[in-house]
Write a protein that binds this DNA or RNA. Sequence first.
DNA 1: GATGCGCTTTAAATGC
DNA 2: GCATTTAAAGCGCATC
Lengths: 87, 87, 87, 87
Amino acid sequence: MTTGEISDTSQTVAAGELRAFIERIERLHEERKTIAEDISEIFSEAKGRGFDTKAMKSCIKLRAMDSTQRQEEESILELYKAALGIV
Amino acid sequence: MTTGEISDTSQTVAAGELRAFIERIERLHEERKTIAEDISEIFSEAKGRGFDTKAMKSCIKLRAMDSTQRQEEESILELYKAALGIV
Amino acid sequence: MTTGEISDTSQTVAAGELRAFIERIERLHEERKTIAEDISEIFSEAKGRGFDTKAMKSCIKLRAMDSTQRQEEESILELYKAALGIV
Amino acid sequence: MTTGEISDTSQTVAAGELRAFIERIERLHEERKTIAEDISEIFSEAKGRGFDTKAMKSCIKLRAMDSTQRQEEESILELYKAALGIV
DNA sequence: GATGCGCTTTAAATGC
DNA sequence: GCATTTAAAGCGCATC
């Protein structure tokens, strides 16, 4: 048995494991892509029903935010707006 | 029936529809987030098994490119060469 | 004179012109990149002085917006927030 | 001296500093916008001269890639090949 | 006027 | 924890 053979064997095992990991991830990537497409479809549907998708996205973002952090950000923004004279 | 009532009614209807759209999207966001976490877990697992996650990501990207993007880049390159008069 | 020669000639002229256009654009790209870096530097400096860059960006965006459109967007957002019960 | 006064003072100072930062950024935004318009003009001019602007943009992108990114992609490919045991 | 595409910007993950 | 790098979102344009 040569050093090369040993090396080859261990590398083959690693390659199989690597391939398995990568294929699992690729499968999840596919699922994620499908979901993204579903989301786009819903926005299109909402748009077709006359809704403003931009405002919808803002609402979704607001709902997703932790209320504590959201108020914190809002207060610092108000502070800055005041400092800049933005009404 | 006042104008206000009409306005209120239509807004109520819209509100229900809007809420439905948004909740559908939020549900998909949740699913997408779950998938993202699953992907992270797999990378962690692979890392624990001694694999280099950065290289893995490069591999995944290359495998994704091969199918479509690589060909696309090829065609653009041909266009580019033609534009520069490289036969 | 063959068709090939005619074609070659016109293509040579076009190539020179094309190259000139492209180099002008590339020069402007360089300038634009420099400016982008300058902007980043200022944000870094502001961050080092304790300012919240995210809020700064919001303020800049608000100042850039047409007040009419801004109020319009704000009103539709408020409408949606009310419909969704976002306080 | 009250806490309120201290707070007000620091805020006033911060306001001036904040305003200065933001105005510097806005000035750079203006410059950047001017450049963007210059670029658009060149594309319009090229279009008027019969060139295909989409292909031009592809060319510019490719030329920008050649210097660094292309080599980077090459090196990633080598890494990829090594990971798969392709000698 | 709507829709797809590309770029810019923004949020997030990762490594130092 | 910060700073870089990478994915995602938002935006504008250019087209049909």
